[in-house]
Amino acid sequence: MECKCQTEMIPKFADAAIDISPLLPVLEAYSGVQGSLITVLQKAQELYGYLPADLLAYIARRLGVAPAKVMGVVSFYTQFRTKPAGKHLILICQGTACHVNGSAEIERAVREYLGVEEGEISKDGLFSYNNVACLGCCSLSPVMMIGDKTYGALTGKSVAKILKEIEKEEAE
């Protein structure tokens, strides 16, 4: 069979909700710039919240690199997600200081509160969580980050309170 990887890779997305237009200026800006794959992927994830397979294939074609290479980079770095995240992404720090100060308990509290495992989205679509290596706020351990905000000196109880607070804000 003839190789069709160059011809069939027009954006024919299974998920019709994906609109390619916001990404076009990014691809335009970086199309000739050597070594910009990671930056393009970071910007794409910023726009879409995650990196759907179709989008990756499209990026590969536009940047003129093999889809396998794009996937290789995506799977290498922990920042990239190929599945959607909840509206609020919770990053639970599993660094050394947090580990020593009970981050396992924090994860348990988050998991029990949301009723989902790592990487899954809560029923209301509001949350998902991921364990991450050190967030660099060790003196406040255990720590988690929601969006750009860091919460320190956590306990199982304070975690529930924080999540409840966000739910309340969302309901309003």
Partner: peptide
Amino acid sequence: DEGDPGAF
């Protein structure tokens, strides 16, 4: 790229 967990 300060990656050592426990260093900031």
